[in-house]
Design a protein around this nucleic acid. Structure first.
Lengths: 93, 93
DNA sequence: CCATCATTTCTACAGATATAGAACTGTAGA
DNA sequence: TCTACAGTTCTATATCTGTAGAAATGATGG
């Protein structure tokens, strides 16, 4: 078990990641439909520049809430259910 | 039941409120110890100006995550368990 | 009424952040 | 190799936000 401070720091990162409309959409999107890649996510969002999307995905992955898996020239994203369950099971509902 | 957009907007507010260290501390504080008033919260946090604390409490109450109840010249705060349960049961763990 | 305490509002400011264009890296296929 | 595509990084900018001091509001007790 990690200590409380560390856990709080983690919680802040996760909640900060979810506290922005585009990122919350991405997180919800990925709980409904798994294994989407960068471009597929971008298409579902409409009107978000690639650089912006990359920025958001970085924050989501840095928080641990979503995992990325490289496959060829694609990167597939998935919600980390364990982290979601711990901090925001709302996503999985 | 509210519609999805509305619910997402609410979720963003709650998560944004929790995505800042001082506010997360306040939320955790209030799940452990209920009915604290403004000054009591300020004392537990140490080194936060009253104006800053007021600002944070406003965001927490605006999100619905904490309720306030006026009693004389004091305002007592409590976590709204229903909202916490829905979006961030981590707080109650 | 006055002084005091609790809390908010006003004002200002430094630092964070969301956004996107342009240039870049890396992979796959022709 | 050349081209096209996937995704990142760099740079810039406008907006947002956390912070606190000072002044204001409001309730309490003497």
């Amino acid at each position: 078990m990690g200590d409380i401070q560390e856990d709080m720091g983690h919680a802040v990162k996760v909640y900060k990641a979810l506290g922005e409309p585009t990122r919350l959409k991405i997180a919800l999107l990925l709980t409904r439909e798994s294994n989407l890649c960068f471009t597929a996510i971008g298409e579902k969002l409409e009107s978000v520049a690639g650089s912006t999307l990359s920025h958001h995905l970085k924050q989501l992955t840095d928080s641990g809430l979503i995992d990325s898996r490289k496959s060829g020239s694609f990167i597939h994203y998935n919600v980390n259910r364990e982290i979601a369950e711990k901090f925001a099971p709302y996503l999985l509902a």
